[in-house]
Amino acid sequence: MKTVSRLLPALVVALMANPVLAHTGQGEAHGLAHGFVHPLMGLDHVLAMVGVGLIAARIGGRAQVLVPLAFLAMMVVGGMLGASGNGLPFVEVGIALSVVLIGLAVALRLALPTAAAMALVGLFAVFHGQAHGAEMPEAASALSYGFGFIAATALLHAVGLGLGYGLGRLASGGDRPALRLTGAGLALAGVGLLVGAI
């Protein structure tokens, strides 16, 4: 626990110092491999998607499947909006806010019902999906590119679930300080992303 407490502030500062790369429009993004890599290139996406897994682990039960599935389903909706040229206002702000609010939900141990957690992550997933879809080049296969970024997102959710379980094992007396500190770190990183998006 002491190691986590010491490393967390350094990790948060390091994460906040990295540029958000997923929305630069640089480079090619074709097919399955490029679709898979795209979500991994943006700190905002990585943090939010791992955070979704943390929330699902925190709630437990069927939320472990339903919350990530809600994110994936609504991300597909957002991806179709973006790919068809339909924009959303304040996409980058919405994405940054997703990191802040998901982090706060974990840090404050909010007792969200599964349906409420699904609605929360689903709302933010539309912004994430729109950003992915809008950056898909015309020459790319929408199906393979889309499958790639869905697979990467599911993998990041699984990382969040695993992290949530691992941090939960450090719990003593029903409290999960390591999980709460991780949520606080997410929220703080999200604030940094939000400042950059405004």
Rank of each mutant, 00 (worst) to 15 (best):
P177I: 03
S144K: 05
V195G: 03
A22R: 13
I95F: 01
A119E: 01
V46E: 00
Q130I: 00
A152L: 05
G162S: 08
L69W: 04
A14Y: 03
V191H: 03
A73S: 13
A116H: 01
A22T: 10
L123T: 15
R6Q: 13
A57N: 02
M74L: 15
A116D: 04
H30A: 09
A116L: 15
P68V: 04
Q64W: 00
A197T: 10
G164I: 14
L120K: 10
A70Q: 04
A117K: 01
A48L: 10
Q130L: 09
S98C: 05
M136T: 14
L81I: 03
H132Y: 11
V4L: 12
V76Y: 02
R169Q: 15
A48D: 06
G61Y: 00
H45P: 09
A14S: 15
L143Y: 13
L161R: 04
A107L: 08
V159P: 05
V77G: 04
L188T: 15
F36S: 02
P9I: 14
P9H: 08
L120T: 09
M118E: 09
A105F: 01
L161S: 06
R180D: 07
I150Y: 05
G82H: 12
I150L: 15
L88N: 05
M136E: 11
M118W: 06
M49P: 03
A140F: 12
L155Y: 01
V100A: 02
V106W: 08
G192P: 07
A48T: 12
A171N: 09
S141N: 15
A96Q: 05
G190A: 02
S5I: 10
M136P: 09
G164C: 11
R58K: 14
L7P: 00
I150K: 03
F36K: 02
R58N: 03
A111N: 13
G78R: 12
E92C: 03
L81E: 06
V191W: 07
V99A: 06
A139G: 08
H30S: 09
P113L: 12
T24R: 13
V99W: 03
A83Y: 09
L170V: 05
F90Y: 12
F127I: 04
G53Y: 01
G25W: 08
R62Y: 00
G146V: 04
L112H: 00
